[in-house]
Design a protein around this nucleic acid. Structure first.
Lengths: 195, 195, 195, 195
DNA sequence: CATGAATGAGACTTCATTCAT
DNA sequence: CATGAATGAAGTCTCATTCAT
């Protein structure tokens, strides 16, 4: 038999990320993905039941991955809530810094999946964000954060901001310096615009 | 005489907003739009050359509209830069408060258009945002705002945040109070999380 | 608008009968049908939701039609049960005599539909056969028919015999004379082989 | 040593019969057959050149088998033509009584093969039936059978009847008693419906 | 001999767009 | 202007067959 050599599933996933990033999910065809992955079109279906599931898998991978690394940030008891929040920002940025295409897919296509049906990945996605919220709640209790902030609103506020900046960067990784972006985000998140 | 020929173009546009909001641009069909607009499918092509141009027009309308109302906020010389920024936030939120569907389309589909080709609307969209940037620059000069902030980054930061919160609200207008969201946004934008 | 001229639905149905007869249902493609009907492939879907439904419609038409003409045979009270059965044989043969292709489709493809799901046409198909059974039951009560015969078995016996003979004829309408076949069927049904 | 290499060809054939009976020839996949046979998909091609040939082989086997046992019935000179015909009916029914799946395949798929190309099995199939015809001709000569009967027509008549009844039974072997069916067939074949 | 991953041709179906009325 | 039937290109997915191991 022809042994499943290499990691064709991973090849396909990476090809899909590139293609989705370039054309958007709906403009991308299975043929494009298979070509990018140097694989026959039909072979994709050995690994994924359909096109949507490929996108799904990309996000599953992303959030599982992110969620797993979460503890590396928060387990350190010496850090203040604010520092831990900074750590989460770093986690996100670090995850994408090697892969701008993934950032673009993340920014553009996640909504397509979010409200469709109960997706398993939603769990880790939401769970990740909710851990962040815990940090904020903690900071409020310690009087380090402003007590009037609505936690859910903050969650969407900062997540939207980060997402949009990732998009800006990913669209043109050479033009914007991700570390500058990162620094600004951390500052604005904590202190806002007003001097 | 033809009774109430009304404004068929507007009917179509409004129908499209609803349909796009519900299914997303690519999942929406011309047939759905025409039905929602109570118009024959072929009639759409009397007003728009193709499907994409409908989306385009939605954004044109949106940003032209927004850009036009801009002066109402900034012409008042008694207001500080910070107050004017608040005014821009209000402008955005007010624009969507009557039309959650438009908010959803705005949030989900704008990216599809942004990097495609030179779109005319991009002008007013960018122009609107850039006026905001002027305000920030002004505030920095007056030492009211933090001087280290990168203007472009701030632009994307706050725009992403607002966009994501509009999405949250539009998805469930009865659950979240847009004014609470608005208040939080204004505060976080200016003072951040830290007490 | 382009008015639905002629009877395109009927054209497609007739084309499908020809194509199905020639290649069998599964070997037939929508493209073949559309070509035979002088219609664009996509147009078929204006009239039928999918390929299987075309086959379905063929049988619906066939059996509804047959069932409707049934009374012309049985309402005549002067006829004996045997004569009425002969009349049913005639009904069947007459239905196909103008359309050998329909006979072939009928013989080859009906089974594909029969056990799939509850098909509406099954009703008229079964109803037609069951009317025949009523005639037999009647004949038995009058002592005109052999009392030991199992009605269901007879139903399948004679129906299978007729079907197979229709196939023989339809495959080569010029070689076999349908009236000769018909005469033999009637005789064998009633008196069997033994002198 | 390779334990029980058994007869893989036979395994595949039997698996195919089951699978074809359940789904029909065209709905059946090579993968289903290989799984049912506990064999790798590719292995099927060591024994059969393609899918159609499997079906072919099933019928070859069936008719060769039937044809071989034929003499057991007709060589007995003490039997009348009518009794010999009964014997042929028995042959057929006995062949299927242990294997309803084979009956279903036989009934549903034989036509697909019959008019395709010159199939070798057609020989034994036709030869078998023609032997039956010889018996009828013989009976006619002896004035035991009705002289007006067209031999070919009778062949298709009785074969269609039997086939349809086998189908009825095979679809639900527990509901219908094959011996009752057999008895009815023999009677109807010889004496018909009329008392 | 045996395996089953890989292939790629081809089928069904959708839908933006056209155009005869 | 308006209509909606008709078009046909294009995309997703299936599956018989091949072939490297």
């Amino acid at each position: 038999m022809r042994i499943k050599e290499g990691n064709k599933e991973k090849d396909i996933l990476e090809a899909a990320i590139k293609v989705f990033a370039q054309n958007g999910f709906h403009q991308s065809t299975m043929a494009q993905i298979s070509e990018q992955a140097s694989v026959a079109t039909g072979s994709i279906y050995l690994y994924f039941p359909n096109k949507k599931e490929i996108l799904q898998s990309i996000f599953d991978m992303l959030w599982n991955n992110l969620f797993e690394t979460f503890d590396t940030v928060t387990s350190n008891d010496k850090l203040s809530p604010a520092e831990k929040l900074d750590g989460m920002i770093d986690l996100l940025f670090d995850r994408f810094i090697e892969n701008p295409s993934l950032a673009i897919v993340f920014v553009n296509e996640q909504n397509h999946l979010l409200f469709d049906d109960k997706n398993p990945f939603t769990n880790n996605y939401q769970r990740f964000l909710d851990r962040g919220i815990e940090l904020v709640r903690n900071g409020i209790e310690r009087k380090e954060f402003w007590g009037e902030v609505d936690l859910t609103i903050f969650k969407y506020f900062i997540f939207g901001a980060v997402r949009n900046l990732l998009h800006l960067w990913a669209q043109n990784p050479d033009k914007y310096n991700l570390n500058t972006i990162r620094k600004n985000v951390k500052y604005l998140m904590k202190h806002g615009l007003v001097a």
